[in-house]
């Protein structure tokens, strides 16, 4: 959060409250405050698509607020009437009649002269996996497959630790460059990739997925993504060419062990 924006804004709103503003001004202040908060108050900045969505909702909410009971509505009617008719507001009225068209014109000018931006793309982050894949000629059922070494966790601690250590070596030889030392998707080369590498420490990535899903993603990589995950096959390599089945299961163990997360369990209808 950008406190340099948020704190003054909140203070300004509180200050305005003491001035007992008219309802119109108050609604406008809130609307502006919401926009400033969304646009400048949150770090890192929100994508404009989200700001648009949120502002639409907030605009609707503020409109409802102003019309939700008879008092407010008549207050709005009165303020509007005063604004339109009374002499003391005349400068404001004529002023806004000039300023708003100027803003419209300026905006049109800015749009015409601004640099074109490559269209934004939405991407399905967790596309549905195929029901099975062929891994080096062997069929692996993505719906049912489970990590063969996961059961060692309870049975044979030493062997399990061995597999995790194996996964660790694989990670630091292959994955760390993009996914980073903290597994936060901020490796040495992450700045040069789009889409950016997955952040495994985020609770919404591997913690949401079954190990077999990870196996699919690691084995088949970006080229193996289904159509729905446009914009394009991500840079993720298809590790099938380099890593064996056991190695992939090992590195999956390491991912969960390093981040301290648990894989989603297989859910099957009994």
């Amino acid at each position: 959060m950008n406190f340099w924006v948020v704190v003054p804004m909140v203070l300004a709103l509180i200050g305005l409250r003491f001035l007992k503003p008219g309802i119109l001004l108050w609604l406008a202040a809130w609307w502006g405050g919401c926009f400033i908060f969304l646009r400048f108050g949150i770090l890192p900045p929100l994508p404009s698509s989200i700001i648009g969505l949120f502002m639409a909702i907030l605009t609707a909410a503020l409109a409802l607020y102003g019309t939700a009971d008879a008092d407010k509505l008549s207050a709005i009617g009165k303020s509007l009437r005063a604004f339109l008719m009374e002499r003391r507001f005349a400068p404001w009225l004529w002023g806004s009649l000039v300023v708003i068209p100027l803003l419209v014109g300026f905006n049109a000018y800015r749009q015409a002269t601004s640099e074109a931006v490559a269209p934004a793309t939405g991407r399905t982050i967790h596309p549905a996996p195929p029901s099975e894949i062929t891994f080096r000629g062997k069929k692996i059922d993505i719906l049912k497959a489970s990590n063969p070494f996961r059961e060692l966790e309870g049975k044979d601690k030493a062997a399990f630790a061995g597999h995790v250590a194996g996964g660790r070596a694989i990670y630091y030889k292959n994955c760390v460059f993009c996914h980073g030392d903290n597994m936060e998707g901020d490796g040495l080369y992450s700045h040069g990739l789009d889409p950016q590498p997955a952040n495994f420490a985020d609770p919404t990535t591997i913690a949401m997925l079954q190990e077999s899903y990870l196996f699919w993603r690691i084995a088949k990589g970006g080229p193996g993504l289904p159509e729905e995950s446009a914009p394009w096959a991500s840079a993720m390599p298809a590790w099938e060419a380099t890593l064996g089945e056991d190695e992939i299961w090992d590195v999956i163990l390491f991912l969960y062990s390093f981040t301290g997360r648990k894989p989603r369990a297989q859910e099957r209808a009994e």
Binding site: L46, P47, S49, F54, G185, N199
Partner: peptide
Amino acid sequence: ATPHSLVATVEESRKMGGAHHPA
């Protein structure tokens, strides 16, 4: 109404540091 994966331009997602916004 907050989507999980956001529609964002390359610049925007660079600033966010990925496809997800941290907040």
